[in-house]
Amino acid sequence: MELQIDDSVLVKDYINGNEKALEVLINRHNQRISSFIYSKVLDRDVSEDIFQDTFIKVIKTLKKGNYSEEGKFLPWVMRIAHNLVIDHFRRNKRMPMFEGNDDFNIFSVIGDDKLNVEKQIIKDQIDSDLTMLIEELPDDQKEVLLMRIYRDMSFKEISENTGVSINTALGRMRYALINLRKIIEKHNIVLTN
């Protein structure tokens, strides 16, 4: 008969740095834990994920020296798996998962209005280029443009803040834009996406 090393001994070995002990523990209890998780979630992929998360928790707890239930390794791991299964269902309840099929594809109803990575990079670049160009403007025009575009202030608020009339503020904004276009044309800068 094959001699089986007790779980508690393997746990101690693992805590003391013997990585092989973990492999033995995982292989020994793989089927029981996997079957337990699968019996609850009824999905191979999800049960695989939960199995993995369970052992990540086990590894962290053991390595941090927070494990104290000597001799009760399997029930402890089962409890972690059980809690993760509950977490999974809670998450799913909050955010139900829809699987698309030929008749109905969820992406035809909802869309992602965010920019993709490439477009986001281009947008960021344009924003930063524009910030540098604005710095080139005369101070009075720059002030009005920053207040209007970046702080979203009305021309009435701008005139109150800068102490000039609304018409002057409008004029400065107009010249700011004209000057920006001039700078862009002069330096052959391309700011489109």
């Binding site: 990585e19 492999e23 699968y38 191979r44 199995f51 993995q52």
Partner: peptide, 30 residues
């Protein structure tokens, strides 16, 4: 029978080997 795949087990063993806990003034860092 439900059983975690060998890849998962390999990943866990690799993860365990790569994980080091460092303690500094009562705070544990992973």
């Amino acid at each position: 029978l439900a059983k975690a795949s060998p890849e998962t087990i390999k990943f866990l063993i690799g993860y365990s080997k790569s994980l080091q806990i460092v303690e500094y003034s009562n705070i544990q860092f992973e």
